[in-house]
Amino acid sequence: MTGSKTIRVLIAKPGLDGHDRGAKVIARALRDSGMEVIYTGLRQTPEQIVEAAIQEDVQVIGLSILSGAHNFLFPRVIELLKEKNAEDILVIGGGVIPEEDIPGLKKAGIKEIFTPGTPTSAIVEFIKNNVKV
């Protein structure tokens, strides 16, 4: 009786950054494309994000950041996922991230970075193409 598989995504805002309009727009777009989106609210530590992702058994973590601390916080999430043997979870990022930081973040294990102006449909498509269900 194999049923359908729903993609589950955790949308998280790491660090000291109170702006979550963007994260909410993404969450809504993913919901409208049929995914289950867990939004955990503002000011999450990487530890909280990774633990929530494991408890919720998500296939994707979407990190949104506007504070400029992405070069520390994003790789830290990847590191913790590895420690917990959960590196199979796809991690993507978004927010105000300078072009020149993107290669480094990708090298650290963030699969894709979406900067302002990205149509939400591109994010939906990226997830659907990259998640094994």
Binding site: T6, A27, R28, L30, R31, D32, S33, G34, M35, E36, V37, I38, Y39, T40, G41, A52
Partner: peptide, 10 residues
């Protein structure tokens, strides 16, 4: 859509 926004964790 079959999707859901799960916000209780907030």
């Amino acid at each position: 859509s079959g999707g859901a926004l799960l916000g209780d964790r907030i």
